[in-house]
């Protein structure tokens, strides 16, 4: 590690995609002036950007404050690029532990995912065949939400 903020690999994983798609969206727009592709590239960078923001706070919460930075602004900018691309190593402690603080209990089984699947199937087929399937689908969906949440509460 050569100074500067440590960036956890989980963050960089999404950051790279966000950075690449921003750059390629700009190039693509000025090269082709084609709307659909540009919008989709911006969607990708926006979506990954949201994930990066969430993980930034998750990383901070789990692993404490990220390192103070060192070096001049140019050096720091260069190191930031290197870290995002992956050439600079995150330190062991920035990478050692997973983000979650501890394990939650794991359910041993549940009927509700299957019921949810049946409800979704009825809803989907209802869209094709009509309300006679749609209405039971809605009923099963409501039942699923109740059952699923009740089971989570009970746990």
């Amino acid at each position: 590690m050569h100074g500067g903020r440590r960036v956890a690999e989980e963050l960089r994983f999404f950051l790279r995609t966000a950075a690449y798609t921003v750059v390629i969206a700009v190039i693509y727009w000025f090269y082709s002036y084609e709307t659909a592709g540009t919008v989709m590239l911006i969607f990708v960078s926006f979506a990954t950007g949201i994930v990066v923001s969430i993980f930034f706070f998750a990383v901070r919460a789990t692993r404490g404050q990220l390192d103070p930075h060192a070096g001049g602004p140019l050096h720091r900018a260069g190191m930031s690029v290197a870290r995002v691309i992956g050439f600079a190593e995150p330190t062991r402690e920035a990478n050692e532990e997973p983000l979650a603080a501890g394990l939650e209990p794991i359910p041993t089984g549940s009927i509700w995912p299957l019921v949810a699947g049946i409800g979704a199937t009825l809803l989907g087929l209802g869209l094709v065949y009509g309300p006679w399937l749609l209405l039971p689908g809605i009923a099963v969906a409501v039942l699923t939400v109740w059952g699923w949440l009740t089971q989570m509460d009970a746990r």
Binding site: I106, P107, S110, W112, P113, L114, A116, G117, A120
Partner: peptide, 9 residues
């Protein structure tokens, strides 16, 4: 895990 089961169904 439950979401995982739902994805399969």
């Amino acid at each position: 895990p439950r979401l995982n089961a739902l994805t399969y169904w």
